[in-house]
Design a protein around this nucleic acid. Structure first.
Lengths: 134, 134
DNA sequence: GCTTGAGTTCAAGTCAACTTTAAGTTGTAT
DNA sequence: ATACAACTTAAAGTTGACTTGAACTCAAGC
């Protein structure tokens, strides 16, 4: 049994975020002790772990919620889940490639401005981009 | 010389986005022909190409703007640029790793739900997660 | 019986990066 | 002269994922 503070800390989230997730239906069956204080158990830990994993793959909270809805009736929805996950696999791979391209661009800038910085310190002329980046 | 429509199309952006970039100071020296119609040239193409590259590495428009500001006085700012780019290199690598972790999670789901899907089609029992994912 | 601390509700606010809307302008074709 | 497409401005609206604020509740300790 965990308090909202404890469970928030466990996942590096704020209590307000945990409450928000419940509000939008992402966290379910939260017991409000005496109709008041929220109490969490291992099922919520599992749910939040899954949410964090999906967030890493950039699923929206809406999509994550949809996934959990599907999971409630695997028999009718395993196909939907599969389709959803395959689409996300593609999107995620694309985003990784996009980021890799961005990273390369940034690294070229690092290379060039390292040369520039050095030239300045040694009182030389600022090198041309083409002389540093082939 | 390009119209706003042409340059927007060239980069897959909307005309309103191009106007917005000008408004926030990301696109500079745009000629308003007869104080009205915007006209763009190669310098704007170059600027927009750079913006798109930085966006791939998830720099905010504010950061991109800062970069261009720094570039105007390389002598005093090459150090700042270098620092900024190195910080971004780190962040981008972190984000790539985060995405890769997310991707793995999604791929495990694909593996499991493929097995589930197949089991359902063949009228078998739904397999346990542990039997599919080691 | 009063304070304190942790928790609560509900509405409103925040942020970035745009997009939309409404109303007006300009140049060209009919 | 009129219609039309393409352009303009300024301000307000949108989206997702939270966060904040104000006012309230509850249990525990002094």
């Amino acid at each position: 049994m965990y308090s909202i503070k404890e469970i928030a800390a466990k996942f590096g989230l704020r209590a307000s975020t945990i409450r928000y997730y419940e509000e939008i239906g992402l966290l379910e069956n939260v017991v409000h002790e005496g109709g008041y204080k929220r109490v969490y158990d291992e099922t919520h830990i599992d749910r939040l772990s899954a949410i964090e994993c999906f967030k890493k793959a950039r699923l929206s909270l809406e999509e994550i919620k949809q996934f959990f809805e599907y999971e409630k009736d695997i028999h009718s929805n395993s196909g939907n889940i599969l389709e959803m996950m395959k689409a996300k696999e593609l999107k995620t791979k694309e985003e990784i490639n996009r980021l890799k391209a961005g990273l390369e661009h940034v690294q070229m800038k690092i290379k060039y401005y390292s040369a520039v910085d050095e030239a300045i310190k040694e009182g030389r002329e600022i090198p041309a981009w083409g002389d540093i980046i082939k």
